[in-house]
Design a protein around this nucleic acid. Structure first.
Length: 838
RNA sequence: GCCCUCGUGGUGAAAUUGGUAGACACAAAGGACUUAAAAUCCUUGCCCUUUUGGGAGUGCCAGUUCGAGUCUGGCCGAGGGCACCA
C-alpha cells in the first residue's frame, strides 16, 4: 500500500494556507466566528473541536463562493495571568504573550483557514484604548452608573463577582464561599434593555431553542402589580409586589426582607440582630438553600388590609424575602403559595382559601397553586384567576392603592474588578467629590508595567504614582479609578473589532461593520449560553443606540454550541489522579500503572480537565497521527452539539482510513485506462452523485458525523469500481469531486490529492446535480409488514408495480390467490397490500 | 421545588415531512495470509431453523394509523438550566 507522510504534506500546505485569503467574489459575505480563546498555555481538545467545526464551515462557504471573514484573537486579560505571575515570577504581560505564541503555533498545526492578519489581543493597548472609548460613550449615553451595593465578594480571588459568576453561592473560578460586602461599583445598565433583550430573542431563528430559553428565564419577566399597605399607628406605607393580586383576600400577613427600610426601627433590638445574622448566613451554601426553614421576626406591627376595612394583618421580617427583587416586601397568601404556607404553619397564621380546588371539605396539606374559581373574595367571587387578576388590578388602580407593574429578574451588570490585569476604567475622581470620564484624547489609560502583584488588595491602587493625575479640562488634581473592567467586557465587542482590527480613529470602521456584521455563524461552548452572549447582545444594542450608522440590533445571526470532549478518568490505589499516558490498558475495563504495574481504577468519561488529569495533548496527537486525522476523528461518530469521548483507537483508525484514501488516489493516478462500459459508467456517475448530494446537505445541516459516515460509504463504493470497465476520465472526474468535498474536513490530504490529479479550480465546489437517479428502491409491505424491497424504475404507477410484484418478488407468495382489500401506495417509497385477517 | 432536553445492539451513533430500524465506525469473537507477530482482508453480531426462511425488537404501559424509533396520554430513568424572584 502506498503511504503518505502527513507531517510533510501538512507543513507544505499550512504554508500555503497562511497566505491564502478567503475572498472570492466580492458579492456575498459570510462572517464565520469561533469564540476566541483565553491564552492559558496550550490549546486543548475543546479548542480543537471548536475550531475544526468553524473551519469546516468557513472553508465550505468559501468554496461555495462566499467572501469569508474568519478571524482569530485572544481573550487575553484575566486572573490566571496574575496568579501565574505570582507563582513563577513572570509578568502577566510576558506570560500572556508567551502563551499566545505557543497557542498560535499550535492552532496553525491544525491547518485552519484563519486570516491571521486580523489577529487581535484584548490586552493590547490598541484594543483596550477603544474599549475605554466605548465605555465613555456608554457613560455619556446613560448606560453606565455608579451604585453603592452589596456585592459578591470572593475572598480567595479578592475581587467582586457578578451575580452570574456566583454558582451555588460559590465563586465560579475559585469555588470559595462568596461573602456579602458593601462597595461602590460601576455598572452597565443592562436592565434598560430588558424588554429588547427578551423580545428580540424571537427573531433569532438561528439560535438553539435551549439557549434562547435559558436567556428568557434569566431575564425573567413577570407581570403583576404593586400594592400599598398602610401600617397601622404609623404614617407609613409598605409597597408590595405580587403576581397574584387575585389572592389579595387570602392575605394573612406581610413579609419583609431583613434589609427593608422598616428594619431601621429594629436595629437596636437584640432578637432582630440575631435574626438578621441568620438571614445573611442562609443563601450561601447549596444545602442551606435547599433545607432553609422559613424563619421570621414578628414586628408586632399590623397593616391595614386594603379591601377589608375591619382586617389588620401582622407584619414580619422573613428570611425568604429578597431585598433586590421587587420592593423587598410581599403579602403572604398561605393557601396558594408554598413558602407562605410553610411560614404560616410555623407561626400559626391564618390560612384562607380564595381559589377553589374542588375539595373544599379538606384542610390543606400544601398550598394549592393550580387554576380554579375565586371564592371568599367579595367582588371577585366566581371569576377564574386571569379574570380576577384583571379586575382586581383595575380596582387597585381606581382606588389609588397601587399600580400595574412588570418586573424583571435581570439585574444591572457590575463591572468593577479590583485587579491589575484588566482594562483600566477611564474615570477620574476630583477633589470636590465629582466623578468624570477622562478626556478621550488621553486614551488609552495604560496599565503600568511596574507593578507589585503581591501587594494587598488592588495592585493598581497600591501603585505609588499611577493613580495621580489631573483633570484635563479644569487642570485640577484628580485620582484615577483603580478598578479594572470585568473581562466579559473585552469579549462583548471583539467581534466588531475583527471587521477592522487596525482601524486607528475609532473602535471600528462603520462601513466595515455594515458589510460584515452580523456574524453569520458563531460557534462556541454552551457554557456561554447566558453570560457572554447576553452581554454581547447588550453591547450591540448599546452601541446601536448612540451610533445610528451601524444599524445593528443583534450581533449573532446563527449560533452553534458544540459539545465537550470527554475522556475516562484514572486513579491509582491511593486515589490520586493519573494522566492517560501514565497507565497501560489491559482491556476496556482494566488497566495498570506503567511504573509499578499496580491496578488502576477506571472512572466514567468526563469533560477533559487538568484537575482530573484526563487530558490528551492535541499537539502530541497531531505529531503522531497528523492534523487531518485529528480533525477527522473529532468530527466523526457524534453529532457536534453532543459530548464526544476521545479514544486513541478512534484517531488511529482515522489515520488508517486517510491512508487508504491516499492509496486509492495514488492507484487512480497510476491506473491503466480501460475500455468503458457505458451502462456501468452511468450507474457509477449516478450513485456518486447521490453521495455528493447527501454529503453537501449534511454539511449544511451541521451533521458532520453523517458527512464522515458518507465518506466511508463513498470510499467503499468507489473502491469497488476501480477494476471495472470504466474509463480513467470518469473515475478521475468523480474522485476530484469527492476530494473537493473533503477539503473542509481534511484540507491537507484533500489538496494533496487534488494536486495529484492536476486539478486546476481547487477553490470551487463541484457541480452537484439534483436527483439524477432513474431507479428507486421500493418497500413492499403486506398488512404493514415489509416483505421485500424491489429495485424498480422511478415513477411507476401502482398497477405497473403490482404487475411486477405478482410476477417476481419475495412478496409474491403472500398475495397469490388472495383478495386484496386495499392498497396503500406512496410513489417511489412503498406499496402496502391489505389482506383480510385470517 | 420549577423549567427544558434526551432514552435505539457491547459502545459512539444513522434512520430530518409517519413508510426498509441498526447505515458508518469502535470494540469483541472466529477465519484467511504469515515460520510467527504486526499490518491487511473476510465472516459473525437477539431468538428459532442445517439452509431457504420465520419471529421478537427502538426505556415501560396504553392509544391514533394500512403502517409508529418518529405523533398523543400516562409511568420509569438519565442529563442540563434556574433556585426562596413574590
Amino acid at each position: 500500500m502506498e503511504r503518505i507522510n502527513f507531517q510533510a504534506i501538512e507543513k507544505k500546505w499550512q504554508k500555503k494556507f497562511s497566505k491564502k485569503k478567503l475572498y472570492n467574489s466580492g458579492k456575498k459575505k459570510f462572517y464565520c466566528l469561533e469564540m476566541f480563546p483565553y491564552p492559558s498555555g496550550k490549546i486543548h481538545m475543546g479548542h480543537v473541536r471548536n475550531y475544526t467545526i468553524g473551519d469546516v464551515i468557513a472553508r465550505y462557504k468559501f468554496l461555495n463562493g462566499f467572501d469569508v471573514l474568519h478571524p482569530m484573537g485572544w481573550d487575553a486579560f484575566g486572573l490566571p495571568a496574575e496568579n501565574a505571575s505570582k507563582s513563577n515570577n513572570l509578568h502577566p504581560k510576558i506570560w500572556t504573550h508567551q502563551n499566545i505564541e505557543t497557542m498560535k503555533r499550535q492552532l496553525k498545526l491544525l491547518g485552519l483557514s484563519i486570516d491571521w492578519d486580523l489577529e487581535i489581543s484584548t490586552c493590547d493597548k490598541e484594543y483596550y484604548k477603544h474599549q475605554q472609548e466605548l465605555f465613555i460613550d456608554f457613560y455619556n449615553n446613560g448606560l453606565v452608573s455608579r451604585k453603592e451595593t452589596y456585592v459578591n465578594w470572593d475572598p480567595v480571588e479578592n475581587t467582586v463577582l457578578a451575580n452570574e459568576q456566583v454558582i451555588n453561592g460559590k465563586g465560579w473560578r475559585s469555588n470559595a464561599v462568596v461573602e456579602r460586602k458593601k462597595l461602590s461599583q460601576w455598572f452597565f445598565n443592562i436592565t434598560k434593555f430588558s424588554n429588547d433583550l427578551l423580545n428580540d430573542l424571537q427573531d433569532l431563528d438561528g439560535w438553539p431553542e435551549k439557549v434562547k430559553l435559558m436567556q428568557q428565564n434569566w431575564i425573567g419577566k413577570s407581570f403583576g402589580c404593586e400594592i400599598n399597605f398602610s401600617v397601622s399607628d404609623k404614617k407609613k406605607n409598605i409597597k408590595v409586589f405580587t403576581t397574584r393580586p387575585d389572592t389579595i383576600f387570602g392575605a394573612s400577613f406581610l413579609a419583609l426582607s431583613a434589609d427593608h427600610e422598616l428594619s431601621a426601627e429594629f436595629l437596636d433590638n437584640e432578637e432582630f440582630k440575631k435574626f438578621k445574622k441568620e438571614c445573611n448566613k442562609t443563601g450561601t451554601t447549596e444545602e442551606a438553600l435547599a433545607n432553609a426553614d422559613k424563619l421570621g421576626f414578628n414586628t408586632k406591627l399590623f397593616a391595614q388590609h386594603p379591601f377589608i376595612t375591619s382586617k389588620k394583618i401582622p407584619i414580619y421580617f422573613a428570611n425568604f424575602v429578597l431585598m433586590d427583587y421587587g420592593s423587598g416586601a410581599i403579602f403572604g397568601c398561605p393557601a396558594h403559595d408554598q413558602r407562605d404556607f410553610d411560614f404560616a404553619k410555623r407561626y400559626k397564621l391564618e390560612i384562607i382559601k380564595v381559589v377553589s380546588d374542588k375539595r373544599e371539605d379538606k384542610e390543606l396539606k400544601e398550598a394549592f397553586t393550580g387554576n380554579g374559581n375565586i371564592i371568599n373574595s367579595d367582588f371577585l367571587n366566581g371569576l377564574d384567576i386571569e379574570q380576577a387578576k384583571e379586575k382586581i388590578i383595575n380596582e387597585i388602580e381606581k382606588r389609588d392603592l397601587g399600580k400595574r407593574k412588570t418586573l424583571f429578574r435581570l439585574k444591572d451588570w457590575g463591572i468593577s474588578r479590583q485587579r491589575y490585569w484588566g482594562c483600566p476604567i477611564p474615570m477620574i475622581y476630583l477633589e470636590d467629590g465629582s466623578v468624570v470620564p477622562v478626556d478621550k484624547s488621553e486614551l488609552p489609560i495604560e496599565l503600568p508595567d511596574d507593578i507589585d502583584l503581591n501587594s494587598k488588595g488592588n495592585p493598581l491602587d497600591a501603585h505609588p504614582t499611577w493613580k495621580i493625575t489631573t483633570h484635563k479640562l479644569s487642570g485640577k488634581k484628580a485620582v484615577r479609578e483603580t478598578d479594572t473592567l470585568d473581562t466579559f467586557v473585552d469579549s462583548s465587542w471583539y467581534f466588531m473589532r475583527f471587521c477592522s482590527p487596525n482601524h486607528k480613529q475609532s473602535p471600528f470602521d462603520e462601513d466595515k461593520i455594515k458589510y460584515w456584521m452580523p456574524v453569520d455563524q458563531y460557534i462556541g461552548g454552551i457554557e456561554h449560553a447566558i453570560l457572554h452572549l447576553l452581554y454581547s447582545r447588550f453591547f450591540t444594542k448599546g452601541i446601536n443606540k448612540f451610533n445610528k450608522r451601524i444599524n445593528l440590533n443583534e450581533p449573532f445571526k446563527n449560533l452553534f454550541t458544540q459539545g465537550m470532549v470527554c475522556h475516562e478518568t484514572y486513579r491509582d490505589k491511593n486515589g490520586e489522579w493519573l494522566y492517560p499516558e501514565e497507565i497501560e490498558k489491559i482491556n476496556s475495563t482494566s488497566a495498570v500503572k506503567k511504573t509499578d504495574k499496580t491496578n488502576v481504577i477506571i472512572g466514567a468519561a468526563e469533560s477533559m480537565s487538568k484537575s482530573k488529569k484526563n487530558t490528551i495533548d492535541p499537539e502530541i496527537m497531531i505529531t503522531q497521527y497528523g492534523a487531518d486525522a485529528v480533525r477527522w476523528f473529532i468530527l466523526s461518530d457524534s453529532p457536534p452539539e453532543k459530548d464526544i469521548q476521545w479514544s486513541d483507537t478512534g484517531v488511529s483508525s482515522a489515520n488508517k482510513f486517510l491512508q487508504k484514501i491516499w492509496n486509492m488516489n495514488f492507484l487512480l493516478s497510476k491506473r491503466e485506462d480501460k475500455k468503458s462500459n457505458k451502462e456501468r459508467e452511468k450507474q457509477f456517475n449516478i450513485t456518486i452523485n447521490v453521495y455528493l448530494n447527501k454529503i453537501d446537505k449534511s454539511i449544511n445541516d451541521f451533521r458532520f458525523n453523517v458527512s464522515i459516515a458518507l465518506f466511508y460509504e463513498v470510499y467503499n463504493f468507489f473502491k469497488g469500481f476501480i477494476d471495472e470497465n470504466i474509463s480513467n476520465k470518469v473515475l478521475n472526474e468523480n474522485i476530484v469531486k469527492v476530494m473537493k468535498l473533503m477539503i473542509p474536513f481534511t484540507p491537507h490530504l484533500a489538496n494533496e490529492c487534488l494536486d495529484l490529479h492536476r486539478c486546476k479550480d481547487i477553490d470551487k465546489w463541484p457541480e452537484i446535480q439534483k436527483n439524477v437517479s432513474e431507479e428507486i428502491k421500493l418497500a413492499v409491505q403486506i398488512n404493514g409488514k415489509t416483505r421485500d424491497i424491489v429495485k424498480i424504475k422511478k415513477d411507476l404507477s401502482e398497477q405497473e408495480i403490482t404487475k411486477i410484484i405478482s410476477k417476481d418478488s419475495k412478496a409474491k407468495k403472500y398475495i397469490e390467490n388472495k383478495k386484496i382489500i386495499k392498497t396503500i401506495f406512496v410513489k417511489n417509497k412503498i406499496i402496502n397490500y391489505i389482506l383480510p385477517n385470517q
